[in-house]
Design a protein around this nucleic acid. Sequence first.
DNA 1: AACCAGGACGTGA
DNA 2: TCACGTCATGGT
Length: 227
Amino acid sequence: MAIYSMLFSLYGPQGWWPLIEYSGDNPTKTGSIRGYHKENYDLPETDNQRFEIMIGAILTQNTAWTSAEKALMNLHDMGALNVLKILEMDEEILKEAIRCAGFLNQKSIYIREIARFFMDLNGRIPTRKQILSVKGVGEETADSILLYAYKQPEFVIDAYTRRLLFHWGLIEEKTKYKDVKVLFESNLPQDVPLFQEYHALIVEHAKRYYQKKPYGLNDPLKVMMDK
DNA sequence: AACCAGGACGTGA
DNA sequence: TCACGTCATGGT
């Protein structure tokens, strides 16, 4: 919680998960198109917004969000950012729409897989095990979907989280996903907005100080970790 | 010109 | 289980 407080005082609310199909007039985050919704923890409100988060979670795998966002905008402009259109869309057209996000051959398959999964859900909240059974959905993507689309208290661990904690001396370099996750979840109140902000804040901080080597240079928090 | 992006999967030790 | 190669495009 101490680390969270410092990150929050540095950067404030992050407004995750960004939603293209959200017509709020909140100020956009610098350098991005739109979709952030600071201090609004009611989103997503519709089934279609939940679906958009799923697709975005696939598209951003090992890919910059700016690229994933362009792919989402392509689909949006085609009126195809919904389950039915995704499922009936020609595969080659889908690939072209998401080409800018990379891994188009895999992601086009994954997107159709999760679209089918989402439709079969019929509005129900999926369990973690169910989401993990979808091809193309690993632990991080599953937790992202549960936390941001379904508001379940699942902490998201990504490469940035690992890198931060490693350089702060809090974990070994290849601590298992589950162990890093437990480290957070066992030390925090099971609060969804807290989990949502915390992960987003980690990404924001890591982008600033842990993107290029040497990692952690001038990290204002690193100094405090040594004590 | 390498290296990194809000990873996951398939393969063979 | 675990290490390693593969997947694709875009930005720095």
